[in-house]
Simulated scan of single mutants.
Amino acid sequence: MRPLPSLTRNPYWRFLVAGIRGQSAYPLATVAGLVANATFGLLKGGIMGAAVASSGGELAGYSAATMAAFVWLGQGMLGSVNLSGRSDLQTRIKSGDVAVDFLRPVSVQAAHILTDVGKGLFALLPRGLPSVVIGVLVSGMALPPDAAAYALGLASLLIGITVSHATIYAVATSGFWLVETRGVSVLYMALSGFFTGLFTPIYLFPDWLLTVALLTPFPSMMQFPIDVLSGQVTGAAAGQRIGVQLVWLAVVLAVGHLTTRAGRRRLEVQGG
Rank of each mutant, 00 (worst) to 15 (best):
Thr8Ala: 15
Val17Thr: 13
Arg265Val: 07
Asn37Phe: 02
Pro126Leu: 12
Leu59Lys: 00
Thr196Trp: 00
Ala65Ile: 05
Leu121Tyr: 08
Leu83Arg: 04
Ala254Asp: 05
Leu34Glu: 04
His257Tyr: 09
Ser220Cys: 15
Phe194Thr: 11
Met141Glu: 13
Ile226Cys: 07
Ala110Tyr: 11
Pro27Cys: 12
Val233Ile: 11
Trp248Pro: 00
Arg92Cys: 09
Thr30Met: 13
Ile134Thr: 10
Ile161Gln: 05
Ile202Leu: 09
Gln223Lys: 10
Asp116Leu: 09
Gly183Lys: 04
Leu258Asn: 07
Val255Pro: 03
Leu246Trp: 00
Phe40Thr: 10
Val251Lys: 05
Gly49Gln: 02
Leu124Asp: 13
Tyr12Glu: 10
Thr181Tyr: 02
Gly271Leu: 01
Val184Cys: 07
Ser6Pro: 09
Glu268Ala: 15
Asp146Glu: 07
Gly79His: 01
Ser131Arg: 01
Val171Lys: 04
Leu73Val: 12
Trp248Glu: 08
Val17Pro: 04
Val35Ala: 15
Pro144Trp: 04
Thr66Asn: 03
Thr216Trp: 00
Ile226Asp: 06
Ala170Met: 05
Ile168Tyr: 00
Val100Asp: 11
Ala51Thr: 10
Gln240His: 12
Met48Lys: 05
Thr216Met: 10
Ala250Cys: 10
Arg182Cys: 09
Ala238Ser: 03
Val171Ile: 15
Lys44Glu: 13
Gly271Asp: 05
Ala50Asp: 11
Ser24Asp: 05
Ala64Ser: 09
Gly45Leu: 03
Gly272Arg: 03
Gln223Asn: 14
Met141Val: 15
Gly197Leu: 08
Phe195Tyr: 06
Gln223Met: 14
Thr196Phe: 03
Pro225Ala: 15
Asp227Met: 11
Leu83Phe: 08
Asn37Thr: 11
Val108Met: 13
Phe218Lys: 09
Ser63Asp: 04
Gly140Leu: 03
Leu209Ala: 15
Leu78Glu: 14
